[in-house]
């Protein structure tokens, strides 16, 4: 499980310092602090960024919105972002609202509020609303990562790293080569959200990353994965083998 990479765009040092403190305290990884528009673009494109926190006004100009508009133009590079603002000026808001999905936070804010705002940004961005505060789910699935809420903060897991998922009631055990942890999401939902070409169901309780399969032992109804993990292949789901090109 990795920390979330956050890019901060804020021109007031005291505020960015406070922000950095709050975020690092909650195990967020700050990839950079930009105080101008150009700086922000450079940092955004040269680092792996998961969430951007943007102050609307940079040096008295609404450059924060301009930045959001700029990254919005290239669809695949866009990341979830949160606007921070001092004023409730309607015109600024109407403009900011055009950069969908849009979440904002009024200054001054406390720790809980900034964390909440970032979670909201992720939910809205990946269009899986009301996840992190519900009682039966704590994970948002993007195309390359799982965003998991652990205690107060978010964590992420690269989907590519997952070996298999084992379902247990309302929980899912995520097993990577190095870790094993529990997330809160229903089986049907996670199957829906994961790429069906990559993740296949081999058992009532198992979803396997097909890229990690080393061996399928049909006689024992067994699948061997990287790191010597063994997963059961039940009779019902044997058809999945047909999906793979098997060397004979």
């Amino acid at each position: 499980m990795d920390n979330i990479n956050v890019l901060i765009i804020e021109d007031t040092v005291s505020e960015s310092d406070a922000l950095v403190k709050v975020l690092t305290d909650n195990n967020y990884n700050i990839v950079g602090i930009a105080s101008t528009y150009n700086e922000a673009l450079a940092l955004f494109y040269n680092n792996v960024v998961d969430i951007v926190v943007i102050d609307v006004f940079l040096d008295g100009k609404p450059d924060g919105i301009t930045f959001a508009e700029t990254i919005n133009i290239v669809p695949n590079s866009v990341k979830p972002f949160v606007f921070l603002t001092n004023s409730k000026d309607r015109q600024i808001f109407e403009r900011a609202k055009l950069t969908k999905p849009f979440s904002f936070l009024m200054k001054p804010f406390n720790e809980l509020e900034i964390l909440y705002a970032m979670e909201m940004a992720v939910e809205k961005f990946y269009q899986q609303l009301n996840v992190f505060h519900s009682e039966d789910q704590n994970t948002v699935v993007s195309n390359d990562s799982l965003f998991i809420k652990k205690k107060k903060a978010l964590k992420k897991v690269c989907i590519e790293d997952i070996l298999y998922i084992e379902v247990e009631d309302r929980y899912c055990n995520i097993i990577t080569e190095t870790e094993k942890f529990v997330i809160l999401i229903s089986l049907t939902k996670i199957i829906e959200l994961l790429d069906p070409m990559q993740f296949v169901r081999t058992h009532r309780n198992f979803i396997v990353n097909s890229n990690k399969i080393l061996e399928i032992v049909l006689s024992d109804n067994l699948i061997v994965l990287k790191g010597n993990h063994h997963v059961t292949l039940s009779e019902k789901y044997k058809d999945v083998i047909g999906k793979f090109t098997v060397l004979k």
């Binding site: 409730k88 000026d89 309607r90 600024i92 808001f93 109407e94 609202k97 406390n110 720790e111 809980l112 509020e113 909440y116 609303l129 009301n130 505060h133």
Partner: peptide, 21 residues
């Protein structure tokens, strides 16, 4: 003059945020 935008809010979290201060 103020911006007013209604959206879905998790009530417990909002209460928590206020209470925090």
């Amino acid at each position: 003059q103020s911006y007013f935008f209604k959206e879905s809010l998790h009530l417990a979290s909002i209460v928590q945020h206020v209470e925090y201060n």
